[in-house]
Design a protein around this nucleic acid. Sequence first.
RNA 1: GCGCUUGUAGCUCAACGGAUAGAGCAACUCCCUUCUAAGGAGUAGGUUACAGGUUCGAUUCCUGUCAGGCGCACCA
Length: 583
Amino acid sequence: MILDVSEHIADQLIYILIGLGLFDKNVKVTHPTSLKHADYTTSIAMQLSVDAIKNNIASSSLDLAEIIKERYLALNDEIIDEINVVNPGFINFWLSKKFISTSIGLLIDNKQIDLAIKTRNREKIMIEFTDTNPFKEFHIGHLYSNIVGESLSRLLEAQGANVRRVIYQGDVGMHVAKAVWGFMQNLENKSGQDLVLRIANLEEKSLHEKIKFLGDAYSYGSRAFEDDSQAAEQIKVLNKKIYDKDIEVMPAYNVGREWSLKYFETIYARLGTKFDNYYFESEVGPEGSKIVKEYQLKGIFEESDGAIIFPGEKYGLHNRVFINSLGLPTYEAKELGLAPRKYKDFSYDMSVIVTGNEINEYFRVLLKALELIYPDIAVKTKHISHGMVRIPEGKMSSRKGNVITGEWLLDESMHQIQDRYVKMSEDSSEKVALGAVKYSLLKFSLGSDVLFNFDESISLDGNSGPYLQYAYVRTQSILARLEIESMDKFIFQIPESSSKDELLLLRMIIQYADVINESANMFSPHILCTYLFSLAQQFNIFYQKHKILESDQRGFRIHLTTAVGIVLRDGLKILGIPVPEKM
RNA sequence: GCGCUUGUAGCUCAACGGAUAGAGCAACUCCCUUCUAAGGAGUAGGUUACAGGUUCGAUUCCUGUCAGGCGCACCA
């Protein structure tokens, strides 16, 4: 809908600067911190003032800014209405009303957002996120990863990318061994029936009861692992048996794995994620081991204390075990097996992996090893890490029983909403609950830890998901009062008497495309959140001050409301937040 | 001890090296016979942990100090 205005202005500026005998290809044109200053701004005059003064081009940064302004005005750029220069040398650009009305008119006609600049047109991007572990719960950390991964996927899709969502699940390893051990022990104590029959009895139970059973088995197993050295030995042996697909453990292993995966699937569906590929540690482990052994011969890996390690210290990192002394691949080796497998399935231009920041260090080591083995894959791999979700009591642990599961949070959020708004439909309250929880995690910049606060995560007021949903619903309920006839008849035009609030709202809408690109390029959904919140705020101010349907500017205001609704709906969709019809 | 990371209003967080450092929550004042008050208007709240440095300009970059978090080989 909108051409890339900042790039357009930057091009003009470069042309002007060359004419002046100044050259800087890093001319940046950005949105100022506040739209009160202008639509676009550049600080180039200040950056080049030293050069300009030295070469007698200008006497100061302010002077240089004035010179640039005059030359820009001489270009008669139709997009720009006004340029002003502000101390100590900012050059501020104001979009013309003509440009604004044309852009908004297009937006309304198309009834959707279509970024003219498809910065990632058809780029193939594989994105891995959520990474649950069968046999364990789906806790808020997984929830966070899922919400972040899904919104990043949608941001990249908005830029035109061909995105493939994948998940990598840990179905082997010590956590699984602990759970299977606990599972078998818990079954053992019940009756004299044989294992297969005892498992069959459990099949009648509901999925939730089965998951509860698995959860208990895991905490029983991990407690035993720490407190009982004999049990710990058994669990280690069991771990190996699981890798080897030993017939003795497979019945319990297979049903537990299946229950878990089925359960996770219900959560992904609820959250609105559909994965295209599923990868499992059990599948990539053997390949990873093979690669490590092959490259051990080439000197990339070394033997140490019976294990095979990658000597990260040689590269300023630290050493990591890739194959343990039992001959089993660790996380790192499995990841090494996963990388080429993913590339084989989808010859991507970029591979994004979303994880918690606790594994940042490992990932650096892993990337180094990958770089030595598959340099072409390594350069395409991008690790995005989000912070850990902390709870006020400290660390979550299954053992302490203070794990907050994703499902519990969503359910609890929904209950609170239904208590407060008794008339709301089931469908809307689920959407609002999702909006509250998702937005509360997305609004923070990625990277640093987030403190989980229940009241805030389900907050319905202020800077929250429901605030945005409410603003959207408000636009729709106003528009719903319209007769169908009236919609197509006006040509979008900004009246002379339009107020500052209305103009500001229009200028904010124009920025949407830039915000999407910035948010996607920086892999930062919170940028979109911040924007949508201020847009909704500005709309609420407008709504409070002005009558829409009963005013002499009815047509204009209806269109304005329509445009805000389109942007809010589209932006929320990109965040993965559904919009209810009524609230 | 080493590596990575964070420190901004009472709390939770924004701010591409730029303009008077902004929001939400909490507190206090107001505004519903009105297109949805899940809203709006206002007041109060800051030596951006501390000390230097680089720059026309530093919350942002560099160095040091202090404080928190994470990671330091067979878990993921």
